[in-house]
Computed example of a mutant assay.
Amino acid sequence: MMMEQINESKTYIEEQLSTTKPDIGLILGSGLGILADEIENPKVIPYADIPHFPTSTVSGHKGQLVIGTLQGQHVIAMQGRFHYYEGYSMQQVTFPVRVMKALGVEQLLVTNAAGGINESFNPGDLMLISDHINMMGDNPLIGPNVDELGPRFPDMSQAYSNELMKVAKSCAQEINLNLQEGVYVGNTGPTYETGSEIKLLRTLGGDAVGMSTVPEVIVANHAGMKVLGISCISNMAAGILDQPLSHDEVIETTEKVREDFIKLVKNVIKKMA
């Protein structure tokens, strides 16, 4: 059943394309979809038109695929993603990653807006994700394994490619960008964490926290894709600063750093082999 759905989505997307198939995938998180506007000769496909695709329900997520070239590379960008808290299953949240793989994508760049747990971070910092902690209480691979998609027990010891992380660090140096590095914690949301929960996550080794990314990265690893993850630290997590948290603040911060973000990601894509 899943293979049929993946193939139907893939066929529909391929029918819309006159250009070469994409080999780099981008998932653009809250407020970061602006990068898709940089894609040349874009073919835009609303999620609602693609068979079996869910639709984005969150502000800051446009809800469309943008396919074209960026820095000379053939890319497919998700301008907006799906979240577990929207009521979708883990399989639905990660379905687009399956379709990207079927289209020929071998490298995936995942971005998100996250709350800073590490007190040396500031809102507006960009953080290279070195690893993650899954606190979602679920996993997109639960259920029968489809052997054509990947192994029953995938290795996650290098969930984020060391090779791509080196590329990102050298690109940040070239543009004089102070790129933080740390562990991303994935929670379900949609509530922001309590101050006590943030203390717990810091004790566990978390540097930033958000409500996405982990499911897609698990599925990308299952599919044998190389992954690079970048978080925009959009606010400090609960209990660090004496102020309430809001989604508006998240969008506002991502808008402030978008130039640095676009510069960094374009530079990275240029160098992805």
Rank of each mutant, 00 (worst) to 15 (best):
P46Y: 09
I45M: 02
K271R: 14
K270C: 11
Q71M: 15
M78P: 13
L241S: 07
G31P: 10
V110L: 12
I218W: 05
K263L: 15
G31L: 09
M135Q: 10
K226P: 05
L245Q: 13
E252S: 15
L179I: 09
N112V: 06
G239C: 05
L108Y: 05
I24G: 07
A237Y: 02
N187P: 09
E197S: 00
D23Y: 15
M156W: 04
I129F: 03
V97T: 12
S246D: 02
G239S: 03
M236C: 02
G31R: 10
E15M: 14
Q71N: 15
G229N: 04
L264F: 10
G195P: 14
V268T: 09
K169G: 00
S56K: 11
M2P: 02
G31A: 08
T55R: 14
A114L: 11
A114W: 00
T254L: 10
G186F: 07
V214M: 03
I50M: 08
E14W: 06
V227G: 03
E119I: 11
L128K: 11
T55C: 10
I67V: 14
V185S: 03
T57Y: 08
D242C: 01
P154A: 12
I269T: 13
R258M: 13
G224M: 08
G205V: 10
A172Y: 08
K226I: 02
G205F: 10
V257T: 14
P154C: 05
D131H: 07
A114R: 04
I175E: 00
L200Q: 12
K271S: 12
S161F: 02
A237P: 03
G239P: 04
E197D: 10
I175M: 14
Q91D: 15
L179C: 11
G31E: 13
F153S: 02
V58S: 07
N7R: 13
S157P: 01
H83N: 10
Q180A: 11
M135T: 01
T203R: 13
H83V: 11
N267W: 00
D207E: 04
I24V: 15
G210M: 06
P96D: 00
L141V: 06
S56G: 04
D131T: 04
E119V: 12
T57P: 00
A273Q: 14
L149D: 06
V97M: 00
A114Q: 01
L228A: 02
V268F: 04
E252F: 15
A36S: 15
T203D: 11
I6C: 03
T253R: 09
Q158N: 13
I45S: 04
A113N: 06
G104E: 03
G25Q: 07
G137K: 08
F53E: 03
S196E: 12
N118S: 06
